[in-house]
Amino acid sequence: MVEPVLKIRDLSVSFAAGDQQLAAVSNVSFDLNEEECLGIVGESGSGKSQTFLAALGLLARNGRATGSVLYRGQEILNAPRHELDELRGNRLGMVFQDALSGLTPTMRIGQQLAESAERHLGMSPAEARARALEMLEIVSIPDPAQRLNAYPFELSGGMRQRVMIALAMICKPDVLIADEPTTALDVTVQAQILRLLDGLKRHTKTSVVMITHDLAVVAGLCDRILIMYGGRPVELGATAEIFSGPLHPYTAGLLRSMPTLSIDPEVDLPAIPGQPPDISQLPAGCAFAERCERASDRCLREDPLLTARTNARSVACHFPLDGN
């Protein structure tokens, strides 16, 4: 079997708040395989972004990560800055949610693209600029030569996100981590960006991690999905299998609350009752227990671990659904 590109084991992330540590991510383990697209799905605060910010050493100052993140066998979690800098932007590209605040406002986008190419590909300024132009063409920005001289605020939201993607892909990385890349965009632009990511994925050997709260986004794009809740992984499996037969009650609730074209507009969309957990007071047992109709005493006492059900599917639940 081929080694995975990223091997994440027992990754936990916590933030210092006053004199207590808030657990944002608890014991997450999974692999990202070669040329795979993995969707990470969860609501705000489920720890999906923090998992990857921690992996890349980009946590906020008060954040702390433990566990292990192996990139092709090399430990990168809490690695020294100079080792991380060889990989970030080079082998590991990241696209952030808000491209307006995510691009330096006082720098032309050509320069922002070129400096990556100069840093990692050892290009001269002229070569790097040519590479930047090529990237703008690849992400389908109109008038790319002119746009090189534009500032981020002079571009539309969709174009800024394309620049972000160009930035992450300029060194042809092994892994592209896209953190809610379409959340800040309107629906038609969302679709264009997803099509762009899908095309890039097909034409390169890059493995893609798609972080989103939107199941519809992963449905068409990802090979496998990891569902997260309250900082824990709750279900992992192939996209088609999860959609056709969820094992975790939370996944089932998410799927039920997805709107479809055939729903009756007079009937309210089904919702999962209750509120997402407050990470400052996580329960001892399953984080989802108090919203779960299948929960028993055991769920309140004992936190279920993500365990493999079959070769390719795992679930963290004491009383999983039968998957049909």
Binding site: E86, F96, E115
Partner: peptide, 22 residues
């Protein structure tokens, strides 16, 4: 602590370059 500094760091730029240029 702004997002674009996080982007600059995610590009693997040296911290001195991040401070001076971004």
């Amino acid at each position: 602590q702004s997002n674009f500094v996080r982007t600059a760091r995610a590009k693997g730029l040296r911290e001195s370059h991040v401070i001076l240029r971004h």
